[in-house]
Structures are given as structure tokens and as C-alpha cells.
Design a protein around this nucleic acid. Structure first.
Lengths: 152, 152
DNA sequence: TACGGATCATTGAAAAAGTCAACGATTGTT
DNA sequence: AACAATCGTTGACTTTTTCAATGATCCGTA
């Protein structure tokens, strides 16, 4: 990731046609966001991805690792590492799949939920910082548009 | 990058609270978008990043490598590689900075502009595919919100 | 029921990308 | 003139990504 602080002023290059390229806008917002998020999550020994896994483990949806990989756009082997880490730290457990014994279901422990709550609060502040330029309505709009773009 | 095709149906996990997490939404849309974009750009020997550099080189803004690094959220050393590659292929040239002789200004060649036009057309199709679920208005809205979030 | 092909989690190795400190050249400041 | 700071570049190092192979299990079909 590039070394820039929270950029406030519009850079000279934003005027270029590419300044409206959705791919670039997503990449840039994602990059700056990740930086902030990971910094905030470091206090809890988490990163964006492990936080996502932990969140889904806490969701009650009982996701399998395959579902996590698909949903988070990760290679299955990356999920193994993430879950390994969370499991070693006692935040998450692997349970046997109910219909499918090949699958492993990831569920949170009590401690996992405790950490998750704290981390989530920290991330909310973070997100608010990142989208500070947007009003409450615009914030909701952005979320809705992203979701719609992803899955109709 | 995870191995998923153009996902059409809403996954089961999207219902979780994290399904509205801006960080995750950005990551996912960026991931699927990159996959499509890089696939489309491969025909021209480009990737998302080299395309971005080429675009800015074609913009007439005469960006320095430092500006490229900042704008694209890249490490300066990564910009060196990208420009090296484009330069070796004759799509771009390094020119001496006008006020600052340390800086190198990146400008496109005729061939660079030719390739860029073709690639840009391919990317537009790509982008339209990715945001197919959005109306024309929503598409513009998304762009505007992303820009506003980034630089007010 | 048994076979065959597919899918799941896991491992390990190889390739790619990211990070970082140091360098010469140049700039701006004191 | 001296000094600290910045630009592009290099090279080393770490992290991340990618991919093929494996054992266990599932599913469809003969």
C-alpha cells in the first residue's frame, strides 16, 4: 500500500478522465480504507480479513470455509490460514458440517464475540472517518449502491 | 484473488450484518472488478495499474512519478516498475521535470495513445458489465459518491 | 450396493506483490 | 556554503497470492 496519510485535498491528477474510472475509485477508496481499518484493528490483533471471518463466525449463519472463501473473494487456502489463526487464539472453533462431513463450519467462541464487539465499535468510528465527506443519506446510498452492484 | 465467476445470485452470507460493511463491499466489488478488468486488458498486455499509468500519461497532465504513486496509492518503487515496463514497450516516455530536475514526467507516445484508446473501449464494456444491475442514474450516483468520499 | 467423478479442507511450493531502507542527484532553506 | 528534504531508483526482505496435489466425503448412476 502506498504511503499517504488521510488525504484531504483533491490531488491535481483527479481531474483526468481516469478520475471517474470506477475501477480506480474503488481501488483507491479500498486502499485508504484498509489502511485505516487495519490500523484500528491492530489493537485487537485483527486485520480486515480476520475481522470479516470473525464477524461471519459470530453471525449465527454457521458458514463453511468454502462459503467464506467465496463470499470474501479468497482462495480456500487463505481461509485455512485465517481460521487457523483465529482458532489458535480461541476466538473461533471449527465444527463438523451438518449435512456434509467434509465441510467445516466456523463458529465463534464467547471470547470471540467479546473481541468482535470491541473491534466492531472501533471499525465504526473508522468508517465514519473515512466517509466523513458524505452525509448520513449519502452514506446509506453508497452502501445500497455497492450492494446492488454486487448482487442486484 | 478468489476463484469465482460473475456471481449473479445473492449468496447466503450476504444477509449477515457484515454484508453492509463498507470495507467489505469495497473489497469485494474491487476484487470482482479487477478480475474482469485484468482479463479484458490482457489482450493489450496491460493490467489495471499499467492502464492507470498509461491513462494518466495520456491525459496531458504530465504527471511525475511521485504524483502517480500518491494518486494511485502505490509505493514509488512500484511506479518505477510500471513505467519501466510501459517504456520498454514504447507506450510511454520519461521526460525531465520542468521546474524540478529530480522529477521525471511521464508522457505517452503515439503508440501509447493508440493502445490506450483500444484498451479504454474494452474497459468501458467491462465496467458496464460489472455494474449491469445499476441504472444509468445509479451508475453516475455511485461514481459521484465515490469521488466525494475520496476528495470531498 | 459399488463405482466414478466432483467437492471439501488442507498442505506445500512457486510466483507475484508489497514494504522498506539506502543511495546519488537535485532542490530549497538557513 | 552547508544542511536537511525530496525525487527516482535499486536491492533485500516479507507478505500475499496462486496453484497443483492429497485424503476424506458426497452424489449420481449403473
Amino acid at each position: 500500500m502506498g504511503p499517504q496519510s488521510t488525504e484531504v485535498e483533491t490531488p491535481r491528477l483527479a481531474g483526468a478522465k481516469i478520475g471517474s474510472d470506477v475501477g480506480l475509485l474503488l481501488a483507491k477508496l479500498h486502499a485508504t480504507g484498509s489502511l485505516l481499518n487495519n490500523k484500528a484493528l491492530a489493537d485487537y490483533g485483527l486485520r480486515e480479513r480476520s475481522f470479516s471471518v470473525l464477524t461471519l463466525a459470530c453471525s449465527g449463519l454457521e458458514p463453511t470455509q468454502r462459503e467464506l472463501a467465496d463470499f470474501l473473494s479468497l482462495d480456500p487456502s487463505q481461509v485455512v490460514s485465517l481460521v487457523d489463526d483465529l482458532e489458535h487464539r480461541g476466538l473461533v472453533k471449527r465444527a463438523q458440517g451438518k449435512q456434509d462431513r467434509r465441510a467445516k463450519i466456523i463458529v465463534s467462541t464467547t471470547e470471540g464475540r467479546r473481541i468482535h464487539n470491541k473491534a466492531r465499535a472501533a471499525l465504526e468510528v473508522c468508517e465514519q472517518t473515512q466517509l466523513a465527506a458524505l452525509s448520513e443519506d449519502e452514506n446509506a446510498q453508497l452502501r445500497a449502491l455497492l450492494k446492488k452492484a454486487l448482487w442486484g
